[in-house]
Structures are given as C-alpha cells and as structure tokens.
C-alpha cells in the first residue's frame, strides 16, 4: 500500500468530514534503501554527504498528478543501493505520506541523481 497509514487517516477523515485535512505548505521527496511500509518508517533513508530531502511540487490532478520541477542530488560519496522514494511533509522528521519502490540505483560522487519533471507521479 503506497499510501502510509498516516496519509490514509488524514484523507479518509477529511473526506468524511470527521476532521479537517492539515494544510501542508511544502512536501519533500526523499530516498531510501528499505521499504518504509505503511508505518512510513525512515529507517532506510539515506544518510550521506550530499543528501537532503528536496522540496517538490506537482501539477494539477487529472487522472494523475505529476511533479513539475526538477529534483536532483549530487552525491559526495557512495550512497549505496537505493530502492525506495517517498514523499514526506517535512524537511526533517515529519510524517511520510506516500512511498513506492524504484529501480535500484547506486549513485556515487560525481553522479547527478535526478527526478526529472513529470517523473514523480501519484495516481
């Protein structure tokens, strides 16, 4: 289930008008090497030079919602094998909203790891 329990709770309670959906000012994309699971755990998130969660934005939802900015990282060393990407509501800590597996990649110093415009899709 790519939506975390936290996200589902917010969405469902908002939809049924039980509670208001909190207003997210920014959302960030992060990378990790382990499945966060529905709990949205950050235990596999990258901890290495050159890594930070990076703000991301999306276009209007029609049948899907796609990122509309380029996101990129410049590793300053080896980051190991990355297998997951996720969307989180804070630059640090916070709550994971969505996640999914990606094709495994092992960026190293000198590489530029990017999520091009339109390549982060939620539907």
């Amino acid at each position: 289930m790519p939506a975390t329990t936290y996200a589902k709770k917010l969405m469902i309670e908002a939809l049924i008008n039980k509670t208001d959906m909190p207003l997210f000012t920014d959302s960030y994309v992060g990378l990790g090497s382990a499945n966060p699971g529905d709990e949205g755990l950050f235990t596999g998130e990258v901890v290495a030079a050159g890594y930070n969660r990076i703000p991301i934005s999306f276009g209007e939802y029609v049948t899907a919602m796609a990122s509309d900015i380029l996101v990129s990282w410049a590793p300053e060393g080896s980051w190991g094998l990355l297998t997951y990407a996720f969307l989180v509501d804070s630059r640090q800590g916070g709550n994971m909203l969505f996640y999914d597996s990606v094709t495994g990649v092992s960026p190293a110093s000198g590489d530029i790891l990017r999520i091009p415009v339109g390549n982060f899709i939620i539907y």
Binding site: L87, D100, V105, R114, N119, I122
Partner: peptide
C-alpha cells in the same frame, strides 16, 4: 575534462483506497 553521469529516477506511486 570531467563528464558528469546523470541518473534519472522515475517514481510512480499508485495510491489505492480499500
């Protein structure tokens, strides 16, 4: 001459509700 390698990721998240 340093030629930088670009690695592009694609993230597809299919959100389903049960």
């Amino acid at each position: 001459i340093q030629l930088v390698k670009y690695i592009d990721l694609t993230v597809d998240i299919y959100v389903t509700f049960g």
